[in-house]
Design a protein around this nucleic acid. Sequence first.
DNA 1: CTAGCTGCAAAGCTTTTGCATGCCA
DNA 2: TGGCATGCAAAAGCTTTGCAGCTAG
Lengths: 153, 153
Amino acid sequence: MEKRVERIKKQLHSQSYKLTPQREATVRVLLEHEEDHLSAEDVYLLVKEKSPEIGLATVYRTLELLTELKVVDKINFGDGVSRYDLRKEGADHFHHHLVCIECGSVDEIQEDLLGDVEKIVERDFNFQIKDHRLTFHGICHRCHDNKTTEESD
Amino acid sequence: MEKRVERIKKQLHSQSYKLTPQREATVRVLLEHEEDHLSAEDVYLLVKEKSPEIGLATVYRTLELLTELKVVDKINFGDGVSRYDLRKEGADHFHHHLVCIECGSVDEIQEDLLGDVEKIVERDFNFQIKDHRLTFHGICHRCHDNKTTEESD
DNA sequence: CTAGCTGCAAAGCTTTTGCATGCCA
DNA sequence: TGGCATGCAAAAGCTTTGCAGCTAG
């Protein structure tokens, strides 16, 4: 954890940005909630727990900065808000998501899966891929299990 | 074209919705701009050209209705607006997009590409896929060609 | 020291909603 | 005719911005 904060600090400095207490608090919240897909408001409330004086605008500005630095990815699942997802270190591709249309849960897939598809796209469409977004909408294993249980009652 | 309007009309009626002049005008705009990825505001302005009395709220309500009926898909490319994309008839999957980070153009890929990936996801993650969203961000063939030309000058 | 950062509040956007009126099936 | 649909304007989010004061390096 400390290591990752340190690394992000260096990344900021290398672009002559400062690691202010507010930015550090925000980064820590993101690290502590790596599995979640927090909205700016979510992050704000969590940061506020430990640093009550922080402003929402600062959180937005920090998240924008971290997106620029590719520390986080800004994603959008179709509800009205942007969510921020920490990039896994060393991951050369953005991970994929499984959004459950029953319970709203969001699971992550770290596996690449798109290698072959990207080759086809680059070749057939002469498109130089820099990033991708892949989201599946459907029924998650938990909701599926619940349904099966109910039926067999 | 008329055939498709007719078919959408039937689809509305089958769910006891009416095809009002405003809804028809909106559908026609969508059909005439099938290749584009119009925002609600875009649709509104285009409908207004032929039916100046229409209100923005009606366009929003119509687009929401058409999304429900799966006549269009609501998509989001990360700029602040939702865009609406007509579903190809007979397409059993939602097509993919190539977003150019240089010029902002959006091209479509009709090919399936995800068949194998979906099988893996359904099996390995026990996730029942209902829909997907796949977008690649990168340099389109037009911008790539321009760069190459400039370099060789 | 000082350029960059922050907090607050106000403004800006897109999208939704309330309500009186209108009109399609 | 009756109830759904519309237009307008106001409201409701989420996000950005202006500005005066503050602070990390």
